[in-house]
Design a protein around this nucleic acid. Sequence first.
DNA 1: CGGGTCGTTGACGCTCTTCAAAGCACGTGG
DNA 2: CCACGTGCTTTGAAGAGCGTCAACGACCCG
Lengths: 242, 242
Amino acid sequence: MIDTTPLVKKLGAFVALSDAELSVLATLLKRRRSFVAGRDLVHQGQSDQAAYILASGWACSYKLLEDGQRQIVDFQIPGDFLGLRSVLLHVSDHSIEPVTDIEVTEIHVADLLEAFAHTPRLATAVLWAASRDEAMVVEHLVDVGRRNAAERMAHFLLELAARLFLIGQGDRTGFACPLTQYHLADALGLSAVHVNRVLRQLREEGMVTFRDGLVTFDDYARLAEFAQFDPSYMDQANPLLR
Amino acid sequence: MIDTTPLVKKLGAFVALSDAELSVLATLLKRRRSFVAGRDLVHQGQSDQAAYILASGWACSYKLLEDGQRQIVDFQIPGDFLGLRSVLLHVSDHSIEPVTDIEVTEIHVADLLEAFAHTPRLATAVLWAASRDEAMVVEHLVDVGRRNAAERMAHFLLELAARLFLIGQGDRTGFACPLTQYHLADALGLSAVHVNRVLRQLREEGMVTFRDGLVTFDDYARLAEFAQFDPSYMDQANPLLR
DNA sequence: CGGGTCGTTGACGCTCTTCAAAGCACGTGG
DNA sequence: CCACGTGCTTTGAAGAGCGTCAACGACCCG
């Protein structure tokens, strides 16, 4: 089943799943759905019964404040869960917006929890995936709490590149990036105006160029040094559970 | 087993655990250990085989940057896991420091994963606990990314109060708080000097007083309004899985 | 009594936000 | 085919928020 490839690859990085386990995973996948860019899939406060796995396109999860400000918590790329936390908790604590047009595969919570009973290793794999997601949110918190605007931007772009590389999109020279400067601002806790200035600075210093939907690393090594980028938190090593 | 009470209470909020499941949980708990304040339990980069459940005292998990700055990701109070993410991922992406002298109960990862095979509902409960922890990190990210210093402080103190209330420590009038202003600064992405100024401001405006290890809510309603505090993300509702 | 940790306060300046305006690429309708 | 709107980017100027530096006081424990 082609849909599952990015997910299986991701879960397989932690738990070597058997054919039987993979087929259980396949039965969880219900219908395929499409959503258009900019129209929320999930609203803050909504009660859900379904989560999704992103098949193609980019999405972002965010929280809105009463005064209209928003904080983007994370971006999702193919293979990532959408709204897994929403269904485990009783109500969604965040909203999800497709950044581009996206395709997703639906999963019902009840099915997922039921599957854990017969396929405990699957539960372990999902717990690992959730931990990895949390590790990325944590690194994001460090970004926003303790790095200045330029370091924050550099670190963020390097993290995105590393995640995209894992699913075969982009390399050390750069990647295609559908985000606007407003997305970057809301993710990094900056104003859009300042995002623009920081991008200019990084470009003029010959480290990275963000233009026309393309991120180009002009000097990857220097950028990584500048951002103090250490990808070990993404846990892209070998399976722990064999 | 008295040790497990806060944990069982927490997990029970999501999954009504049977006596059999509770006894499995009890067998996971190995020896009791104590650590003194200020001496790290877990170091960033360390490979672990054990996680802990906090029985008494406060701890914090944090990440250090190369230039010596630190970001505190979360504080742990009795009933919380310590280092669960460290053992699911291959290496710890953070350090853990006891804020006070603490007592913990050790759990071996291998045992925990093994228990999932026989007690899948336990896996679900642990996945829920991990999701709830993630939700708190996410709210913390919103704090640091989009709230000013005073709102951030107010929101943070209200969240702590709500968590402590769940385990029977503190109420709407306030709580005992062993944190220093340096802890608050490292958690909120501020300087210790500015933390002091913000605390003075909140105190002079009659909303909350932080003094001598005690947080006193002088006007809870106004503080909650000021911080736009909405505790729903902590998911303190009824069990989803019965 | 002396040193260490924590809290407190003032002065100064940098980072980042806000406000304002203009340019570019696009799609849409006349 | 051009006028017009809309979303995104770009740039400047002014000022607020918060960090840094520096100093001092309170308390605890050796």
